[in-house]
């Protein structure tokens, strides 16, 4: 019977703490507005958006852990990644998830876009959600593009050389854009450094902001339902 007394004391303590926090944070309100929302009957195609978010969080986490050992310099980038893969405990797992996560994220985001297109979920009142989503798709591709150079291996180096050259084929401004992307006329330490900055600071910052807007709009308008003959 002693243990039951303990249990009740714990419960009271929990209730007190919860009430104190609820008065200040509005936990109950949050629960009704964010979690206990009504939704149309969903199916598995509806999970692609949250799967993209999950992959983004996973990429952010593994990416942050990779920067613990990665060095963005032509002298050390390749060796530091080799060290992550062979020298550090579970480095292969962290990099493996980040590498394959990038591939899967592009795939999942793209299929998510196709699903929204096929069910015409971009129509009133969700036009802005779609626009932000297009931005997210492009940013995901941008993350793939900038991240690809970072291992500083043959494949990365030459693929980026060609890709920046393609951007440089633009009439009039091509040369300027090429130099702006590369940080000079050639692929160099400056290119690696600015791709790194774009990959870990600039693009993720924009990505997080757009994800926030995307989620706000989804909560505001609710998830769209699968269309039937009546729609």
């Amino acid at each position: 019977m002693h243990s039951i007394g303990m249990w009740q004391k714990l419960r009271t303590a929990y209730t007190t703490v919860y009430q104190w926090l609820d008065e200040r944070l509005g936990l109950g309100e949050m629960y009704t507005n964010l979690l206990d929302r009504p939704e149309p009957l969903g199916n598995w195609w509806n999970t692609l958006g949250s799967a993209s978010l999950f992959l983004f969080i996973l990429q952010a986490a593994t990416g942050i852990f990779l920067t613990v050992y990665y060095t963005p310099s032509p002298d050390h980038a390749y060796d530091s990644i080799n060290y992550i893969m062979t020298g550090v405990a579970f480095g292969w797992l962290v990099r493996g998830i980040h590498h394959w996560g990038a591939t899967l994220m592009v795939l999942v985001v793209f299929i998510h876009m196709l699903r929204v297109f096929v069910t015409a979920s971009y129509k009133y009142p969700r036009e802005l959600t779609w626009l932000v989503g297009v931005g997210l798709l492009l940013l995901t591709l941008g993350m793939g593009f900038t991240g690809y150079l970072l291992p500083w291996n043959q494949k990365a180096y030459w693929a980026t050389t060609v890709a920046t050259q393609i951007a440089g084929s633009m009439p009039f401004v091509g040369d300027f854009i090429l130099k702006a992307l590369r940080g000079g006329p050639d692929l160099s330490a400056l290119t690696l450094q600015r791709f790194f900055a774009a990959h870990i600071w600039i693009l993720p910052a924009v990505l997080i902001a757009l994800i926030g807007i995307h989620l706000y709009l989804i909560i505001k308008h609710g998830e769209s339902h699968f269309p039937t003959k009546e729609d």
Binding site: L35, R37, P38, P40, G42, W44, T47, L48, S50
Partner: peptide, 16 residues
């Protein structure tokens, strides 16, 4: 329909 929590989130979690 259903509820976001736990019905939808459950599916999302399985997918994740």
């Amino acid at each position: 329909g259903e509820r976001f929590w736990p019905d939808s989130i459950f599916k999302d979690a399985v997918m994740a």
